[in-house]
Amino acid sequence: MLGHFADIAMETYALESALLRTQKKEGTGGAESGRLPAAAVRCFAQDALDGIEVSARRLLSAVADGDPLRTYIAALRQFTKRDLANTVALRRQVAEAAIEQGGYPLG
């Protein structure tokens, strides 16, 4: 259970760090400098939320059952409700930059 909590916390810290970095990059370097990092963050955010949902469901199922569990799961769905992004295309966009540059393209 504690491990699932840690996983949720880690993904949250990771998402916030990447999001703030990208917003800062766009704010200081302009839209073009933020384009590829934005694709990376948009893709990561979807995966992070997926992971958070899985970990939270496992954690909640271990601490509650019946009606309280149903209430928690409904709240979780509210918290993590989102419009899905095309992560296949976003990931390919980053990959193509890596292929073109011969390695890590986001530094």
């Binding site: 949720i8 916390a9 993904e11 949250t12 917003q23 948009r42 939270a56 979780l76 989102r82 992004a85």
Partner: peptide, 18 residues
Amino acid sequence: FLGPESRMLAGAKKAVLM
């Protein structure tokens, strides 16, 4: 900029605390 992702982050923080 990245508004939807900012809202996802807000939701993630709520998921941690629940």
